[in-house]
């Protein structure tokens, strides 16, 4: 199986603390891979690192990012500009904020195409039609404020995919949209990934979105991957206590009315509170001395299903 994107041992530091600490995963062409976790777990920084667009205060302290086999971690900015938008691109959480309010949407899609005027207009028009925008001839010259949030996200997707990149990073692409639009956008992403062979890295905190679209999922906790594997396997047989508790916390229609919501006791540790061992130790029902002392390695528990826990067998 070929690989569109391979991340190994990615470490990102703010100050002296590794807020992303040894993340590794790979995505195949046409595959949707979800990075799921709470705010502050490092998933958005990971997304920014993939495009080499990290905030200034964040340093990469280790790891490699291979885009179609090429290591892009050490490339100079000039080379990176040729890669961004062409071979790896990104869509954002708030589509209306991610579009320049003063520039027609078609012009912003064209910007990513690298094409000159006449050919570009036709290419943009086709791309807008492909992402399901009705009446692209009219929409192409409209401004973001004239379009709905869902339509703006379609425009963003068009601009991200017009140059046929190998990888699309989607950072919470549906969080700001209402539920019916959310489903349409997810359908669109899934269809485009399949049709065009685009690998999608989906950043989300929403287990429902993961279940809906992702073939594989990596559950992140406090800058590390807790568990990674095929979505169906992770959901049906979680091998990490954090995943298990997360899934148990999803409210269900069958729940008794007015019953208490399940929660994970405690809160996510701040980077300054990270200890030597497992970072979930303060909230984990299985925690013991070893968990406090030594970080658990990410080990394969089933076929393609990995978990970083000393007590995996207790969840079997």
């Amino acid at each position: 199986m070929s690989v569109a994107l391979q991340v190994s041992d990615l470490r990102l530091a703010i100050g002296g603390v590794n807020v992303v600490d040894g993340i590794a995963f790979s995505v195949a062409p046409g595959e949707v891979m979800a990075l799921v976790g709470e705010s502050g777990c490092g998933k958005s920084l990971t997304a920014q690192a993939l495009l080499r667009l990290l905030p200034r205060q964040v340093r990469q302290t280790g790891g490699r990012i291979l885009l179609e086999g090429e290591d892009i971690t050490a490339l100079p900015e000039r080379r990176l500009r040729q890669i961004r938008g062409r071979r790896i691109s990104m869509i954002f959480q708030e589509p209306q904020a991610a579009l320049d309010p003063l520039s027609p949407v078609g012009a912003q899609v064209r910007e990513a195409s690298g094409l000159a005027s006449v050919a570009a207009r036709e290419a943009v028009r086709r791309m807008l039609a492909e992402v399901g925008i009705a009446d692209p001839d009219r929409r192409i010259d409209q401004y973001p404020f004239e379009l709905s949030g869902g339509m703006c996200q379609r425009v963003m997707i068009a601009s991200a995919l017009i140059s046929r990149p190998a990888v699309l990073v989607a950072d919470e692409p549906t969080t700001a949209l209402d539920v019916t639009i959310q489903a349409q956008i997810l359908d669109l992403l899934r269809r485009l990934a399949a049709e065009r062979g685009t690998a999608i890295v989906l950043i989300t905190h929403d287990m429902g979105v993961v279940a809906d679209i992702a073939e594989r999922v990596a559950v992140m906790y406090a800058g590390r991957i807790a568990e990674i594997g095929p979505t169906a396997a992770v959901f049906s047989r979680p091998r990490h206590p954090y995943t298990a508790l997360l899934l148990a916390a999803i409210p269900r229609l069958a729940d008794e009315p007015k019953s208490r919501l399940a929660v994970i006791e405690g809160s996510v540790p701040q980077p300054s509170e990270y200890g030597a061992g497992c970072r979930f130790v303060g909230r984990c029902p299985f925690a013991d001395a070893r968990c406090n002392a030594e970080p658990p390695p990410l080990l394969e528990t089933d076929d393609g299903h990995f978990s970083a826990c000393w007590h995996t067998e207790r969840l079997a």
């Binding site: 938008g85 954002f92 904020a97 991610a98 910007e111 690298g114 991200a160």
Partner: peptide, 14 residues
């Protein structure tokens, strides 16, 4: 600091 700048850079703009 706005997202559209990050988006423009993600499209390959300097």
């Amino acid at each position: 600091s706005r997202d559209y700048v990050a988006a423009a850079r993600a499209r390959g703009l300097s």
